[in-house]
């Protein structure tokens, strides 16, 4: 049973009379513990696809099974619950809450999961440790570098032990040295604890960290390659 099973997904945006086909008939299966790079030129539908995988958006056609659950049948709050427990998001622009310390940002997913304050703090500290930011817990996002902010975001994605991390151009705002560090972190998480990582990028050297590359063009998948040796 694949962890993610997208079947003939399409997404059409309607802007007045104009129809924008962001996705047309995308099918993709991703198993547990995979590290997939989603590639393709700008506007090819990568983000749209990721949003659907992340249950932030619903497809206009096709079926999406996440751990065998048909996500299309779920209501708003049920989808929120899935995002909370099954999915960790990492965004290009970090999307940390301003004026909120790193630790509190990391605790955020647990706020909506009914954990005790003590357990939240404990797990947030562990997550902070696993992204190599010990001692930075009390810093505000504005006091952290881009790379450090992205590490906080990754810790936030990890803290609820979600099996899937979705990262949409996570290194897009970072320099190449920091990007490499962040990618090393993803590799470590993927190999160390079986977390499935799906990562959008249009840079081949970033995609090189992954085990499988899926290429999009004009809303369709044009190639799906597994790397030799993995």
């Amino acid at each position: 049973m694949p962890l993610i099973d997208a079947q003939d997904i399409s997404k059409v945006y309607r802007l007045g009379d104009i129809e924008v086909r962001a996705l047309s008939g995308v099918s993709l299966k991703i198993g547990k513990g995979e590290f997939v790079a989603v590639m393709g030129p700008s506007g090819s539908g990568k983000s749209t696809f990721m949003n659907i995988l992340g249950c932030l958006d619903k497809p206009t056609g096709g079926r999406y099974l996440l751990e065998d659950i048909d996500v299309g049948s779920l209501d708003r709050d049920a989808l929120a619950g899935i995002r909370n427990k099954k999915i960790g998001f990492v965004f290009q622009g970090f999307n940390l809450l301003p004026r909120t310390s790193a630790l509190e940002n990391i605790e955020l997913p647990m706020l909506y999961d009914g954990n005790s304050a003590r357990e939240r703090r404990q797990r947030a500290l562990e997550a902070l440790h696993s992204v190599g930011l010990e001692g930075r817990g009390e810093h505000y996002p504005s006091q952290l570098s881009g790379g450090q902010q992205q590490r906080v975001a990754i810790a936030r994605a990890l803290v609820n032990n979600a099996p899937i991390i979705l990262a949409d151009e996570p290194t897009g705002n970072l320099d190449s040295k920091t990007s490499a560090d962040i990618m090393e972190l993803f590799v470590k998480l993927n190999s160390g604890s079986d977390i499935t990582i799906i990562l959008v990028t249009h840079e081949t050297d970033i995609a090189a960290y992954s085990k499988r590359a899926v290429k999009f063009l004009d809303g369709s998948i044009v190639s799906d390659e597994c790397k030799a040796g993995s």
């Binding site: 992340g54 932030l56 708003r76 709050d77 929120a80 619950g81 995002r83 909370n84 427990k85 998001f89 999307n95 940390l96 809450l97 955020l108 997913p109 909506y112 999961d113 936030r156 609820n160």
Partner: peptide, 13 residues
């Protein structure tokens, strides 16, 4: 944006 972040992370209605 904050509301968006909270929703993405699992805040319900």
């Amino acid at each position: 944006r904050e509301i968006g972040i909270r929703m993405a992370i699992g805040a319900r209605t």
